[in-house]
């Protein structure tokens, strides 16, 4: 799911700090964004916009952090509005709903752990590529 890629480039202290912060940003946003998933995306998007013209290393990690939030936004938003409809409308709790919430929790938890790990490694200047998101980021960041 996650793999370390050697790059022919030694990022500076400032770069590793900023790249690591892009993950931390999404981490903090997850906590705030759990009840309102769009916050995750806004936070990482703002960070991305602020750093898109910096060095490759920073840009790459900001993009990966942003992309990972995008897919979470969809699944979390769906779960969020489903929950709201159960609380405020005649919709009832079903096995399908509980199963969905469990799937959402598993994906969020995986993302959460991966984010912490990547933030630590990136801070050390190690380049971490995620499954799927890493590939898209490679495709976007030239």
């Amino acid at each position: 799911m996650i793999h370390i890629k050697k790059i022919n480039y030694e990022p500076s202290e400032h770069e590793t700090e900023t790249a690591s912060s892009s993950y931390l940003m999404s981490l903090i946003a997850i906590i705030v964004g759990l009840p309102l998933p769009i916050i995750n995306l806004i936070a990482t998007l703002m960070f991305y916009l602020g750093n898109r013209n910096t060095t490759y290393f920073v840009r790459w990690h900001c993009t990966q952090a942003l992309l990972s939030q995008l897919s979470l936004l969809f699944i979390n938003s769906f779960g969020f509005w489903w929950t709201i409809s159960i609380i405020f409308t005649e919709e009832i709790i079903t096995n399908k709903y509980i199963a969905y919430i469990i799937a959402v929790l598993i994906f969020n938890l995986t993302e959460f752990i991966a984010t912490i790990y990547t933030a630590i490694q990136t801070r050390k200047g190690i380049h971490i590529e995620w499954w799927f998101y890493g590939s898209i980021t490679n495709f976007i960041c030239k």
Binding site: S71, I75, I93, T94, N95, K96, I98, A99, Y100, I102, A103, I106, F107, W131, F132, S135
Partner: peptide, 22 residues
């Protein structure tokens, strides 16, 4: 990779929905 990820999510959902959580 994208398709596998989507399948992974829906697969988790589908398998988990077979359990009587209620």
């Amino acid at each position: 990779q994208g398709i596998v990820t989507v399948f992974l999510f829906f697969g988790t959902w589908f398998i988990s929905a077979q359990i009587d959580w209620i």
